[in-house]
Amino acid sequence: MTVSKKTLATFGSAVALVSMTLGAGAAMAQEGELRGNIRVVIGSTSTGADTYQNSSIVTDALAEKLGLNMKVDAVGASSAFRTLDRDSRGNTLMIFHDYAYLGYLYGVEGFSDIFEKYTIGPTVSINPGNAYLVPKDSPYETLDDIIAAVGNGETVRVAIQPGGVSEIGFSALKNAIAIEHPGQEDNLVAVNTGSQSDKNQQLFDDQVDVINGSVQANEQYTRLPEDDQKAMRFVWLTASQDTIEQAPEEGLGQTTREQLLEYVEPNVNVTMGDDENFTFDKEFFFIYNKDMDPGIVAQIDEALAEIYEEGEIQETLRASFFTPNFRPSGEASEHLQEKMARYQEIIDNIK
């Protein structure tokens, strides 16, 4: 069989092209870059709540920056961790919030020490809306009234979802009562329940005196007249003053930023002792498989740094009542470990 010089030349070019492609692929693998389809699992099963909304904003921006197909998958905490455990290639990433380590501190089944088992990626935003509310006709006008009542022997029932973000404010409040009114802290009683709608219903039915909620979920009820069974008012936002000050001036719904600032320090104080007050910012961050290539960690850090430098994502986040909060992986891990140690003290104090 005779092969023409033209055919040989074409074949040679093809071989060279394949070699170049393989070489580029090898270089990409060595650099640890993301490639292919990327699944971003989140620790929530809801596609309407803050974790999904926040994760979608960040993931869409990252996908566009890197030219990749990235999809958010709301699988829930346990499933997300299991899925992440099985994939060290970088094709599965995770976004979650402080419940990732609080669940471990509270001994929730299925939670491990994320700082030992996983690599912590960058923080991306804060949901500043974590709140505590009472009925609009409650005798407790302020959080100080609640602390004083419990200190005087009154039982105050608080609806929370146990084990995480919903409970940490309750724990801090109970710790503050133990400091200011030793021996009376057990008069603050947790009523463990499920979703936000479950907590709301407890308040509507007069089964509790206070609920954990959020600005996003509960602001609508604060607009109702006092004689409405569903009318509520805020008594405490756990976020720091600095975080709320970064919220849009118009706030959310009919509640302005200035009104929201009435419910954070220094207007509301929950002592931790030694002149330190408790605050809690609900932060969202990436979590990676421990064996994922460090090059991918660096790539995501660099891409997000550019995205936040450009500034458009900040406006998108603020429009959804999130506070932009980018920290690269190393800084984020150190910061979150400090938070975990701080909240561990509170939880240990009230055991």
Rank of each mutant, 00 (worst) to 15 (best):
R86C: 06
D87H: 15
S88N: 14
S88I: 06
S88W: 12
G90H: 14
T92N: 07
L93S: 10
L93R: 13
Y99A: 05
A100F: 02
A100T: 03
Y101M: 02
G103K: 02
L105T: 01
G107T: 03
V108N: 08
E109C: 01
G110N: 00
F115K: 03
K117D: 07
K117P: 02
T119V: 12
I120G: 01
I120R: 04
P122S: 09
V124E: 00
V124F: 03
S125F: 04
S125D: 06
S125N: 09
S125E: 02
P128D: 07
G129C: 08
N130L: 13
N130V: 11
A131G: 05
Y132H: 08
V134K: 06
V134P: 08
P135I: 02
K136M: 14
K136D: 09
D137M: 13
D137A: 11
S138L: 09
S138P: 12
P139N: 10
P139W: 12
Y140H: 11
E141Q: 14
E141R: 14
D144H: 13
D144L: 12
I146R: 08
I147R: 08
A148T: 14
A149C: 08
V150I: 12
V150H: 11
V150T: 10
G151D: 04
N152Y: 14
G153R: 12
E154D: 13
E154M: 05
T155R: 15
V156I: 15
V158K: 11
V158H: 15
V158N: 11
V158Q: 13
Q161E: 13
Q161F: 14
G163A: 10
G164M: 04
G164D: 04
G164W: 01
G164E: 03
S166C: 07
S166R: 08
E167T: 00
I168G: 00
I168W: 00
G169Q: 00
F170A: 00
F170T: 00
S171E: 06
S171D: 08
A172T: 06
A172K: 06
L173W: 02
L173I: 09
K174Y: 07
N175A: 13
N175K: 15
N175S: 14
I177E: 05
A178D: 12
I179A: 03
I179C: 07
E180H: 11
E180N: 14
E180V: 07
H181D: 07
H181S: 10
H181P: 09
P182N: 07
E185G: 01
E185Q: 13
E185P: 03
D186W: 03
D186Q: 13
A190R: 14
G194R: 14
G194E: 11
S195G: 09
D198R: 10
D198K: 08
K199R: 15
K199C: 02
K199Y: 00
K199W: 01
Q201Y: 07
Q201T: 10
Q201R: 14
L203C: 03
